[in-house]
Design a protein around this nucleic acid. Structure first.
Length: 517
RNA sequence: GGCCCCAUGGUCUAGCGGUUAGGACAUCGCCCUUUCAAGGCGGUAGUAGGGGUUCAACUCCCCUUGGGGCCGCCA
C-alpha cells in the first residue's frame, strides 16, 4: 500500500499559499475546501507558507493572508503562530531539510546536474514552440562525462539539479473527484528540483528547491494525507508522484478542485475587477456570507438549500461531491446571500458593523472630540456614543432590507451623516418645476416648525398639504425626498424626516428650494 | 504543437437508464406601495453537436466542437 488511502489514518490537509500578494478568492475557496474536509473528518488543517522565492515574498502580504483566513473563520491547527510537531511551517525556514533528499535522489540515480543556462533553455523552448514541438527539456545533461562537466565548471556555470523521469511506463493516480488520471512518462521532461542561482537575475535564489520539489518533501514530512488544490496542478501531479516514489514516501490522495473563472470564462484575475478577500471585507460583505457563497461554487449538499451554516457544511461536506466543472464568480448571488444573512442579523450587531464601516470610510468620527481631552469627560463620551449608536440603530432599522451589503449604508443613509447634500441641477429643477409643489414645500417648511415632530404627524402634515393644494401625495413626496436627501431612493420618507430632525429638515428645505429660485 | 481536465437555462447547481429535467441568483410581468428594496404570485430560459449501446438515454461509450490547464531554475 503506497498511499494513505484506506489506512484509517488521521486526515491531515494543508493550505500552502505563497506570500506574494493578497488572499485571492480562488485561494480562499481552496483553503475553505481543505478546512471543511479536515473538520468533517475530524482531521488536521495545516497552514504552510511557501516563501522560497524570497524575491517575491513580502511581509505585508503574509499578514493580510493570515488576517483574511482568520476573518473567514478558517482556523488552522498547525502553522504560523500555532503549535505543531511538523514545523517549521515556513518553507524559508526549512532549507536545511531539502539537501538530504537531493542527496538521496543522487544516490539512487534519480538526479543529475544540469549546466544549461536559463538563457539557453529559453532559446530552445522558443525554438521548439515555433516549430510546434513539445517545448520540454531534452535531457542533454543526463549523461555528461566528467570532461564536459569540468569544461562547464571552468566556464563558470553553476549547475541546477534535475530529476530523472523514467523513460518508460505511465504514471497514474486516482483523484477523488475525477477518478483515474494517467500520464505517459515519455511526455514528462526532467524538471529542475534545485535551482542553481547562476545569473545575476537569480542571485539570492541559488540552491533553493523548486516548488515541485519542496512541495513534495514538505507534504511528505508533514504527513499530508490528502492534497486538495486547484485544477491547474493536475499536470504537475505525475512529476510529484514520481518524486514520492523515488524517495519511498507514501503518496497522498489527490483532489483537484475546479478553478473559479471570471465572467468571460477565463480564470478569475485582477482584470475581472476585485478578487482579493480583503476587498469584500472592506465593502461590508460578511465572512459567513462569503464562505457560504464560495462553498456553493462547486459544491451543493442537495441542490436545494442555498443558505448553509458552517456547522452544516462541516457535517455534510463530502468532497467527492465537489463538481468537476469550473465555476464563474457571480457577485450578484454573493450579494443576495449576504442580504439573507443581513436580514436575519441581530440589530445591534448590524449597527456595530455599520458604525465600523462609517468610521473607516470617514463618514463619522470614531469618538466624540471630548474623548481625547481628559478622562473625566470620557464617561460622558460613552453616553454620547451610546446615544449615537441608538440613532444609527434607528437609521439601520428604517433602511431595513435595503442594506444588502454594509456599504449600502452610503446609498441609503448618507444624508443622515452629512449636511452637504449634492443636488443634480436638472433633477432638482424638474422636481420643482410645478408651482404647486414649490408652494407645498414652502408651506411644509412653515408647518414643520410647529408640529409634533414624529413620523405620524409628519406624514399627516405632508398628506394634508398635498390635498389642500390639489396634489397627489406622491407628487409632493418625491420632490420633498429629493430636497431633503439629494436622492430619489431611500427608506421610508416620513421616518427619515423624523430621524433627521426638525432643524435639519427645515434647513434643507430652505437650502434646497433657495437653490432653484 | 503535445498531453491533461471539463461540458444541464445568462450564472451556481440537483439528477446518478424510464422525471411534465428540480432548486437558487439574475431577468421579465403583475400585486403591494411615497421612491428603492423586501415580500407575494406568475413568466421567459437548459441537457453543445453527431454517432453508437439499450425496449428506453441528460445519465453509459466514441468522435467533433467549445472552454480551461500544464509543458518555467514562478508557486
Amino acid at each position: 500500500m503506497k498511499s494513505w488511502e484506506g489506512q484509517n489514518k488521521m486526515v491531515r490537509v494543508r493550505f500552502a499559499p505563497s506570500p506574494t500578494g493578497y488572499l485571492h478568492i480562488g485561494g480562499a475557496r481552496t483553503a475553505l475546501f481543505n478546512w471543511l474536509f479536515a473538520r468533517h473528518n475530524k482531521g488536521v488543517f495545516i497552514l504552510r507558507i511557501e516563501d522560497t522565492d524570497i524575491l517575491r515574498t513580502d511581509e505585508s502580504s503574509l499578514e493580510s493572508i493570515l488576517e483574511d483566513l482568520k476573518w473567514l473563520g478558517l482556523d488552522w491547527d498547525e502553522g504560523p503562530n500555532t503549535e505543531g510537531n511538523f514545523g517549521p511551517y515556513f518553507q524559508s525556514q526549512r532549507q536545511e531539510i531539502y539537501p538530504k533528499y537531493i542527496k538521496i535522489l543522487f544516490e539512487k540515480g534519480y538526479a543529475y546536474y544540469c549546466y544549461c543556462t536559463p538563457f539557453e533553455l529559453e532559446q530552445r523552448r522558443n525554438l521548439a514552440l515555433s516549430e510546434h514541438k513539445t517545448p520540454g527539456y531534452d535531457g542533454r545533461c543526463r549523461n555528461l562525462g566528467s570532461e564536459e562537466k569540468k569544461k562547464y565548471e571552468a566556464e563558470g556555470r553553476r549547475p541546477a539539479v534535475r530529476f530523472k523521469i523514467p523513460d518508460e511506463g505511465k504514471t497514474e493516480f486516482r483523484d477523488l473527484i475525477r477518478g483515474e488520471v494517467v500520464f505517459d512518462n515519455k511526455l514528462l521532461d526532467d524538471f529542475v528540483i534545485l535551482k542553481s542561482g547562476v545569473s545575476a537575475v537569480n542571485s539570492g535564489r541559488g540552491g533553493l528547491p523548486t516548488y515541485n520539489f519542496a512541495n513534495v518533501i514538505d507534504d511528505a514530512l508533514m504527513e499530508i494525507t490528502h492534497v486538495i488544490r486547484g485544477d491547474e496542478h493536475i499536470s504537475n501531479t505525475p512529476r510529484q508522484i514520481l518524486l514520492y516514489r523515488a524517495l519511498g514516501f507514501k503518496e497522498p490522495v489527490y483532489v483537484h478542485i475546479p478553478l473559479i473563472l471570471g465572467k468571460d470564462g477565463s480564470p478569475l484575475s485582477k482584470r475581472h475587477g476585485t478578487v482579493s478577500v480583503g476587498w469584500y471585507r472592506e465593502q461590508g460583505f460578511l465572512p459567513e456570507a462569503l464562505v457560504n457563497y464560495l462553498v456553493l461554487l462547486g459544491w451543493a449538499p442537495d441542490g436545494i438549500r442555498q443558505i448553509l451554516r458552517v456547522e452544516d457544511m462541516i457535517k455534510e461536506f463530502i468532497i467527492e461531491r465537489v463538481s468537476k466543472n469550473p465555476a464563474i464568480f457571480d457577485i450578484d448571488k454573493l450579494t443576495w446571500i449576504n442580504s439573507e444573512y443581513l436580514k436575519n442579523m441581530d440589530p445591534d450587531k448590524k449597527t456595530d458593523l455599520v458604525i465600523e464601516y462609517l468610521v473607516s470610510s470617514g463618514a463619522i468620527c470614531s469618538a466624540p472630540m471630548s474623548d481625547v481631552i481628559s478622562d473625566s469627560v470620557s464617561e460622558a463620551s460613552e453616553l454620547h456614543r451610546g446615544a449615537e449608536k441608538d440613532k444609527i440603530k434607528e437609521i439601520v432599522n428604517i433602511i431595513g432590507d435595503r442594506l444588502k451589503i454594509i456599504s449600502d449604508i452610503e446609498t441609503y443613509g448618507s444624508f443622515f451623516f452629512t449636511d452637504e447634500i449634492k443636488y443634480d441641477e436638472t433633477e432638482l429643477s424638474s422636481k420643482l418645476s410645478d408651482e404647486k409643489v414649490r408652494k407645498g414645500l414652502a408651506v411644509l417648511k412653515e408647518k414643520f416648525a410647529s408640529i409634533m415632530f414624529d413620523h405620524q404627524n409628519i406624514e399627516q402634515t405632508v398628506r394634508d398639504v398635498a390635498r389642500e393644494l390639489g396634489l397627489k401625495a406622491k407628487d409632493i413626496i418625491h420632490p420633498l425626498r429629493y430636497v431633503l436627501t439629494g436622492k430619489t431612493v431611500g427608506p421610508s420618507l416620513f421616518e427619515s424626516i423624523a430621524l433627521l430632525g426638525r432643524e435639519k429638515t427645515i434647513a434643507r428645505l430652505k437650502i434646497g428650494t433657495d437653490t432653484i429660485f
